[in-house]
Design a protein around this nucleic acid. Sequence first.
DNA 1: TCAAAAGTGTTCACCGTACACCCATGG
DNA 2: CCATGGGTGTACGGTGAACACTTTTGA
Lengths: 229, 229
Amino acid sequence: MLNSYKTEDKVLLAVDCIIFGFDKDDLKILLIKRDFEPEKGKWSLIGGFLKRSENLNEAATRILNHLTGFHDIYMEQLYAFSEVDRDPVERTISVAYYALINVENHTEELNQDYDAKWFSVDNAPKLIFDHDQMVRRAIKRLRYRTATKPIGFELLPEKFTMRQLQKLYEAILDKKLDKRNFISKINSLDVLVKLEEKDMMSSRKGSYLYKFDQEKYEEKSSQNFSLNL
Amino acid sequence: MLNSYKTEDKVLLAVDCIIFGFDKDDLKILLIKRDFEPEKGKWSLIGGFLKRSENLNEAATRILNHLTGFHDIYMEQLYAFSEVDRDPVERTISVAYYALINVENHTEELNQDYDAKWFSVDNAPKLIFDHDQMVRRAIKRLRYRTATKPIGFELLPEKFTMRQLQKLYEAILDKKLDKRNFISKINSLDVLVKLEEKDMMSSRKGSYLYKFDQEKYEEKSSQNFSLNL
DNA sequence: TCAAAAGTGTTCACCGTACACCCATGG
DNA sequence: CCATGGGTGTACGGTGAACACTTTTGA
């Protein structure tokens, strides 16, 4: 019965990455112009194939790093897409991952060898294959995660203002929030540190900068908070 | 560049199913005694391989049906497990699915050709490969789904008592619930129909039977309720 | 001095939670 | 008549939601 394995069909296993970024008021995704057939010249998610020597998380990290130069990125497995004809060339199952990156820190290191570009999520071009479906599912997951873990912070620079954080949540959830209620909810999580420093860019008065307190978060994250916004 | 596909590694893609059932007070999983190497004779999830002609949902349904005889079962994709050495024979990625079935309706049709048996989730034997990890993840997902969709009903017979429903939620969430609060929360969802009929099995007085109202549920399910228990 | 964004508290309605007694029936 | 499980309502505290004015400072 050992050789029952031998008679089974093998498939190609792809990994596609939905890379979210945040810039001012907009939630964005990073897309790449495909430079090979099929669908050459069309916009697509960043992707590649799983190698024999690595697991899926490693593949996702490698692919992301290779095509963008980014490293140390928050990533999470999303879903396996498996329609029989999803890739016209060959039977390929794709496991989608999504990543959160902070655009400011990483824009300079974007690998110029590839034709990658940021698009606003609600202004993105049509994508190849089932990539649009992947993006929709990723946004849904991101909304859910937002209420469960403070991953929103992954999309911001190390120091940020309350207003930026609020804009980010508004972009993810696609609704307006009240600033007083927002601030008190965020404060009640007790995972931010208010700095002395102010950001003078956005207004004459200047607004306090905050940073995320990794330690406090880890203390609490065991009991899985929920943030109702 | 088309032939870049050709140089990529192909892998076996397995599907493993965590099959949940509910019986009296206990949340159970259906396990099978493996009758082939490796790990012959050990307990394992029900599984099989993806075929070229089907997508993953179809494969999961086929595998479940073939090994158990069950049909029309609620299933959901869980996660892709991909450690390089997870299967000692050959590089295999496994996409786990979980299924919810109502034990009463299906016990008689359990395929006797396979050595399958129900185990209480917290009393199950050690499983092969990474199957224990799959089960843990499935339980976590089931808890979350319970708060989001009324999938718990999938685990009960068509007609059930409030007490049974409560026991089910207690088993899934692994905590005691107050019956008055439970009933009022369930009623506030407005997806159950109270029948005239009573179940006389469980007590002298008898308890009213309820059924799930598919239509009412569909009306509401667009706005994704949340049930805080 | 004024425009533009920052910062700050209170009130109300609703919901989650805790809690205890009577009811119906079969043996 | 009594033991067993079924069914029902209320009071309290906490949290989410709505809401408006003052502060700072560069131009």
